[in-house]
Design a protein around this nucleic acid. Structure first.
Lengths: 185, 185, 185, 185
DNA sequence: TATGAATGAGACTTCATTCAT
DNA sequence: AATGAATGAAGTCTCATTCAT
C-alpha cells in the first residue's frame, strides 16, 4: 500500500514538473509517465484522465492559499503587522511550491469553466480579505485592489518569471504597503 | 483583391471570437472556418497554421500597446497628468478590443517560448515606462511595480472577468494613483 | 459529392465484408479502412464510430424485411400461396445480401440493448405476420411459431452455415409448410 | 483443496452471471473477479484466459445436451413418446441452467472458429437425432429440420427472451409435434 | 481564390495478463 | 493459493494540414 501511495506521488511530482515546463495542453500523459518512470497504464490506475491529475495539482495551491487566508481572517493585530505576516507567509508558501504555483498562476486562466473559475475565486478571496482587513479605512476597495494587484504582479513576474529572490520581493512588497498606507488615515 | 482581404478579415474576426470563447487549445481550425463561413482549405490560403493566426491576433494588441507606450514616453507634461491620460488611453483601447485583449491576457501565459515572451515583454515595457516616468521619485521601481500590478489587475479581473464599466475602472485607477503618489515626494 | 457517396459506400461494403468474416468485436476500424482502401481518419468523416456503421448495416436488413412483411400483410390471396411467395421473396432477398444477413443473424444476438432488440423485433414481426395470416386456423399461434422457427433455422444453418442452395431450401420450406398445413382444418 | 475448488466455482458462477448479462466481449476479467469477490490475479490461477473460462462454461451446456441426446438415441419406445420425453428433458435441463444456456445460445454464434463450431455441432446433433428417430417416415429430413427449428425458436425466444413459463412452452412444443406428425404416415 | 474530402500522425484510454509479495 | 499493483500492447478517435478540382 505504501508502494501505491508512492506511485501516485511519483505521478503527481512528475506531472507538476512537466506541466510547469510545457503547460497543460502541450503535456502528454506519456510525458508524465516517462518522467515518473512508470508504465502508461499505471497512470490510469490513479487518475481518470490528464484533466484529473491537473485538477488535483491545482487543488494543492488552492488549499494552501485558502487555509492561509482563513487563518489570517480572524487576526486582531495591528493591520500593517497582519499584512506583513500574511504576505510573508503566502509568498514563502508559494515560493516553496514554485512549480505548483507556476501551474496555478499560468495554466488556469487559459482554461474553461471550473478550472478558470478556480483562479478567479482565489483572486476574489484575496481581494475580499484585504477589503475586510482595511474596512475601517476610506477607499478600502481601492486599497485592496492595489495590494492584490501589486502582490500578484510581484509573485508572478518577479518571482516566477524573473527568478528574483523571494526575500527581496517580500521586502519590496512591505515597502509598497508602507507607501500605500502612509498617506492614509 | 478586396475580396480576399475580406476573407482574411472574416477569418481573423472569427478566430478572435472563438479563441476568446474557448481558448487557443480548445479551438479547432474547423471552429474558426465554421464561424467565418468559409471552407476548411481556405484557412490555409491566408495562414500557415493555427499558431500563425493566433500570433497575428496577439500582435494586434502588442502593436496597440507598444505604440501607445512609445508615444507617451516622450511626453513632458506633469507626471500625474501623463499617467492619467496614458492609462485612460490604454484602458479605452483595450476595452474597445475586448476580445483580442482577452486573448492576449488570458491565452498567452500558458504557452511556451515566444508566445509567452510576448506577454512578458509588454509587461516589462509597462514597468519600464513607469520607472522612467517616475525616475525623479524615490522608490520609483516599487511605484512602477505597484502601478502596473494595479492596472493589470483592474483590467483583467474587473473589466474582462467581472465586466465592470471601463469608466468606473479608470476612475478607480486614477484614485489609486493619487493614493500612491500622495505620500510621495 | 458523388465522390463522397462512393467513399461512404466503399466503407459500408468493406465493413460488411469484415464484420461478416470476423464478427463485430473482432473487427477493428483499421480492418475496415484497409479493406476499403481509405485512410483511418476518413472513416470518421462518415461514421461517428464502429458502432454506428454496424447499426447502419443492420438497418439495411431490417429495412428489407420490414418492407416485405408490410407488403405481404395486406395480401388477400390463398394463404398457402401467400406463404409461398412471401417466403420465396424473403429467402431470395436475404440470400442476395448474404453477408449483411449473416451479420444480422449472427452478430446481433450477442450484443446489448437496442442492437439485440433489433433482432428480437424482426423475429416478433415474423411471428405476428404468420399469426395474422393464419388467424382463421386453430392453433395459429403454434403454427406461426413452427413456421418462423423452421424458416429461421433453414436460412441461418442450411443457407448461411452449410451453404445449401437457396432454391433447394425454398423447396424444403414449401414442403414443410405443406406438411404443417396438411393436417389442419 | 476444497478451498481452491470453491474459488474456481465462485469464478465460474460469477462469469456465468456476467457473461449472460453483458456478453462475452463486453465482459472484463475485472467484472468477473469483482463479482466473485477475489483478486484479479486469482483468476489466472484457475484459468489461462478469459477465453478459457468461457469455453469451460459453454462445455457445461454442451455436455448436458450431448449426454441427453446420446441417452435417447438408443431409445426404442414409441416415437412420439420419445420426442415428448426427450424434449421435456432438454427443455427442463436448459431451463434449470438458464444463464449458461443463455450464453450458449446467444454468445457463441458471433464468435469465430471452434467456438461458433460448438453451437453448430450441437445443432447438427439435434438434427441428426431427429432424422434417425424419424428414419422410417417419409421426409424425415424435413421433419427433423422443422422440429429442431421449432424447438430452438421456442427456447431462445419464448423462454430466454420473453420469459415464458417452461411448462407452457413444453406443452406448445408437444402440440406442435402432434400437428407435424398428424398428417404423416 | 475557394472548396471540402481525404489524410495519417499521434494522443488518449482500456484491459488482459504478469509478477513480486 | 491469493493478492492487487503494474504493465504495455492495442485500439479508438481527433484534428491540423494537404490537395485535386
Amino acid at each position: 500500500m505504501s508502494q501505491s501511495v508512492s506511485t501516485r506521488d511519483k505521478l503527481i511530482s512528475a506531472a507538476v514538473k512537466v506541466f510547469s515546463e510545457k503547460g497543460f495542453f502541450n503535456t502528454k500523459v506519456s510525458d508524465i509517465v516517462k518522467e515518473a518512470g512508470v508504465a502508461q497504464g499505471t497512470f490510469y490506475i490513479y487518475f481518470r484522465s490528464k484533466e484529473e491529475i491537473f485538477l488535483r495539482i491545482t487543488e494543492l495551491v488552492e488549499g494552501l492559499i485558502d487555509e492561509t487566508i482563513e487563518r489570517y481572517r480572524r487576526s486582531k493585530e495591528n493591520i500593517r503587522e497582519v499584512i506583513y505576516s500574511f504576505a510573508e507567509e503566502v509568498f514563502y508558501t508559494l515560493d516553496r511550491f514554485k512549480e505548483v504555483s507556476y501551474i496555478f498562476f499560468f495554466q488556469l486562466l487559459c482554461m474553461q469553466d471550473e478550472l478558470k473559475e478556480k483562479y478567479i475565486n482565489i483572486h476574489r478571496k484575496f481581494v475580499q480579505f484585504y477589503r475586510e482587513l482595511l474596512s475601517e479605512y476610506e477607499n478600502n476597495h481601492i486599497l485592496a485592489d492595489m495590494i492584490v494587484g501589486f502582490g500578484e504582479k510581484l509573485f508572478k513576474f518577479d518571482v516566477l518569471i524573473e527568478g528574483r529572490e523571494i526575500k527581496d520581493v517580500i521586502d519590496e512588497f512591505k515597502s509598497g504597503i508602507d507607501i500605500i498606507l502612509r498617506g492614509i488615515r
